[in-house]
């Protein structure tokens, strides 16, 4: 073992060393922000422009299909989109597909000050948690009341002015799905594709990747990818928020990944000749 060089050691670094470097490295930009500029991806810009086509009185359906664990990824974009929707004078219906949907709704409600000027039941409604996958999404398309007889607080839908004329997918003008799983697929297959309702996706990065073909084919009018998409939307509406704050941490951590990869390859090539 005495002949072990630094390159050999590099090949077998204890993982814990990486983890500590990463954990500490992630904190530094929060204490000393860098503020690197970010560019806007075309799919995010299209999402934003699509929201700007909303007119007063249009009804938008937001599906929160992410749990609190993915708030950092999906919530900033959801918040930014909600601000745009409400400022366009559109009405909002929010539903949640995860068990902690109520917490997510509280978070959304508290992060968008515009709600304070609006009236619950007339301008916006929270219908609450639902389960049942693709079948239930198809069911809502034909009859909302069969899945949500009341809103999340137990008020029958007919007592809510906004819901009086909203019975099925035909009464909804746009749908946004925020996802960590497969719910975006369900809405694409059961709402966007058969009824031609404009739809956009607020997804974690991998979903942004898998849904790219649907955006290219026009089924989705826009995609926001992860917290990066959130930061881009925050830039577009001119209100830096939670996503913008973590962009620096992302830059630092991604640079660390690249550095680790470089180190791994240098070590690998330095020792390859000898191993042969």
């Amino acid at each position: 073992m005495s002949s072990e060089t630094i390159w050999d050691k590099l090949q077998n670094i204890d993982r814990k060393v990486f983890y500590w470097i990463l954990w500490i490295g992630l904190m530094i930009p929060f204490i000393r922000p860098i503020g690197l500029p970010i560019s806007i991806a075309p799919s995010t810009r299209d999402l934003y422009n699509g929201l700007l086509t909303l007119e007063e009185g249009d009804v938008v359906w937001i599906n929160i299909a992410f749990g609190v664990s993915a708030w950092i990824d999906c919530m900033p974009a959801t918040v930014a989109c909600t601000k745009v929707i409400l400022r366009q004078g559109a009405k909002l219906i929010v539903v949640g597909a995860y068990t902690d949907a109520d917490l997510s709704w509280d978070k959304l409600r508290n992060s968008v000050p515009d709600f304070d000027q609006l009236e619950y039941g007339k301008d916006y409604v929270y219908l609450g948690y639902y389960t049942g996958g693709e079948a239930v999404v198809a069911q809502i398309a034909s009859d909302i009341r069969s899945v949500f007889p009341t809103d999340a607080y137990g008020t029958p839908l007919d007592e809510l002015p906004l819901m009086k004329e909203v019975n099925s997918v035909h009464d909804i003008d746009m749908v946004l799905s925020g996802d960590t799983g497969d719910w975006g697929d369900y809405y694409m297959r059961q709402w966007a594709s058969p009824y031609g309702i404009p739809m956009a996706e607020i997804g974690i990065a991998m979903l942004a990747s898998s849904y790219m073909p649907f955006y290219k084919s026009g089924l989705l009018f826009g995609i926001s990818s992860s917290s990066r998409g959130g930061a881009e939307l925050e830039k577009l509406i001119g209100e830096p928020g939670e996503a913008t704050v973590i962009m620096d941490a992302l830059s630092v951590s991604h640079l660390m990944v690249i550095a680790a990869v470089l180190l791994a390859n240098i070590g690998y090539f330095a020792t390859r000749g000898r191993r042969r």
């Binding site: 990463l22 664990s69 690998y268």
Partner: peptide, 21 residues
């Protein structure tokens, strides 16, 4: 839940180190 999901961040970091050679 908020803690466990991101734990993958650690593991993906070391997975990159080993996979990207």
């Amino acid at each position: 839940g908020q803690t466990l999901y991101p734990i993958t961040g650690f593991y993906i970091f070391s997975a990159c180190y080993r996979a990207f050679r």
